[in-house]
Design a protein around this nucleic acid. Sequence first.
DNA 1: GATGAATGAGTATTCATTCAT
DNA 2: AATGAATGAATACTCATTCAT
Lengths: 195, 195, 195, 195
Amino acid sequence: MPRNPLRDQQAREERRRQILDAAAGVFARRGLLTKIDDIAAEAGRSHGHVYGYFKSKEDILMAVIQRGQEAYGENLRAALAMEGPAADKFRFIAASALSRESSADSYMVLLQAIFTDLLDEEQKTAIRERGLANRKLLVKLIEAGQRDGSVMSGDPVQLATLFATLIQNLMLHETRGYAPPSEETINLLLRMIAP
Amino acid sequence: MPRNPLRDQQAREERRRQILDAAAGVFARRGLLTKIDDIAAEAGRSHGHVYGYFKSKEDILMAVIQRGQEAYGENLRAALAMEGPAADKFRFIAASALSRESSADSYMVLLQAIFTDLLDEEQKTAIRERGLANRKLLVKLIEAGQRDGSVMSGDPVQLATLFATLIQNLMLHETRGYAPPSEETINLLLRMIAP
Amino acid sequence: MPRNPLRDQQAREERRRQILDAAAGVFARRGLLTKIDDIAAEAGRSHGHVYGYFKSKEDILMAVIQRGQEAYGENLRAALAMEGPAADKFRFIAASALSRESSADSYMVLLQAIFTDLLDEEQKTAIRERGLANRKLLVKLIEAGQRDGSVMSGDPVQLATLFATLIQNLMLHETRGYAPPSEETINLLLRMIAP
Amino acid sequence: MPRNPLRDQQAREERRRQILDAAAGVFARRGLLTKIDDIAAEAGRSHGHVYGYFKSKEDILMAVIQRGQEAYGENLRAALAMEGPAADKFRFIAASALSRESSADSYMVLLQAIFTDLLDEEQKTAIRERGLANRKLLVKLIEAGQRDGSVMSGDPVQLATLFATLIQNLMLHETRGYAPPSEETINLLLRMIAP
DNA sequence: GATGAATGAGTATTCATTCAT
DNA sequence: AATGAATGAATACTCATTCAT
């Protein structure tokens, strides 16, 4: 059978993605105490397999976080690109964040990673920078909302932080033992930032 | 031979408190990966000493969380007992939570503890129940605020959750690499729940 | 990827047996104070290796004891299956027990295990039940001996116990600092139970 | 109150004896895994108290063993001093050994102590020498029995060992899960060494 | 590539022993 | 003397990582 480098490469990336999917779930469920074996088992592979795709556990952790942050960033960019009033954009962001199960996972993993010394400062800085980049996008949305009158006045950076905070932490509600956030929760949240 | 049982008992409680103080700080800084030796070193004692006061690491963790939740509850009760408009009470709560350094610590520790299987379900349930008890106090405050017109309309339970979420997550700001919450942040926060 | 599952399985069992052999020797030499590292060193492996085959030190201890009891039971069954006078069967049992070095090991380990609270009651019960099953076999031999006139009269259960006691404790002679039991010792022993 | 050196000394010895009594029981029950705290608790004292009377745990262990061996020796000497046929003397020894609860304890403790490296060779030698001294006494009894026709012919040393073995191990019966030795057991035992 | 056996650094916990009171 | 707080050496066990097959 003739080699097919492109196909090989794609297969490799697909398997790497599968491992990351598994890792995101297990990290979220078990926190930083997650073992490589847990991830491998979730992916239906051996732990040796995992090391064929990632250098270390830390490496996997960084990849999970990065993917989560980039997905959130994509969401923000999609909202920015939407037509219509800013309110709709916020509803879109809130709904997306709260619907995708993995969001809460990524956020919690990120929070824990920053909170321990498992990662070195360089890695933490990378995470923080991606976080700041995402907040910039949200600030733009806030500013647009203030211009079209759908968001209250006030420092857009602070407002962005508060809004992000609300969304992110709402994702943890089920984990905290509260009822999962509903449509009504989203409405309330949007009223809170309305003028 | 204990010459003074009362004094001994008090000294013992004092040392236990010192260990808890140390543990709260280290757990917050290093997360659940905290080692007993870290706690002992922070308390300026040997790890053997720590085991004279706590049965296990898990035991210390539970004690740290419980103390944090009870301190938050005290805060809420103090606010409820205050005279004056509801808005002042919210400001008091927000200011207390954001000022005491240990609050953010306790909250993060709690979040992580619930998020891993380090604790068994029974212990997690105890934590969740204390959390719900505290939320009930906050719901009372929200309802009072709605009666005197200082809080927007809406389901008080949902509003309480959102408000708590804002405060608690703001406590993590510095950790997340953002600027620490200021007086202005608090004003903004209070405007968000105003009608 | 296991190219040869059968071979792998066999290799695994072989290694497990090697660990048990090492453990039996070390337990016998060092008693219950034996460290996992001692066992691993005796087997020429790391302690991590040992944990790949046994769940805990207690687990190894139980396996060593069980193997010893089962080997003794096999001996008794072989004697029962022998042709000829009962006296020959007793000689066979005595000689086997005193010759195989490991017998004394297993017996001493068993004695110590029952004598401490390292094992829980359930495990001790399992050991005692295997002991009683073995004694039943010996009782059969005693009864056959009484029928063919090679064993003195008396309660067969008591006689079985005394005979077993003699054999088992003789195995400890070297340990006790006495001369090892000889052919002559066996003759004497057999005369003691003769009518 | 005037000092009374003699009285002080006696009080001290009495307390030392109390500790030894406690230690013998606990060592027998828990084996070499016995903790100093167990002994102290059994004696109704603090562990610090125990160190006022013994240098180390090893020290206590040696004292317990020595006392047991000496008590056994006293028994043998008392038998030797008895009037009458040798058979009565054996019955006396067997009955004493099996009746005094502490005998089995001491024997098991001795067995375990010799079987580990908790004691150094010097200490083990001391124990073995006391054991050999006791066996000499028993050999004298056997020889007397052979002279008066109440004991079978054969090497007296071997016979002594077998007899001692029977008695000692019978002491462990209850521990092994068998019925405790009875009057009938003793009769059987005496018949076994009869000509 | 895939597997899982093997290793050993790392960690929680225990307990003999010391010593201030 | 008596107590028990404090220490730290010792030890069972875990788990990330490597590597032979």
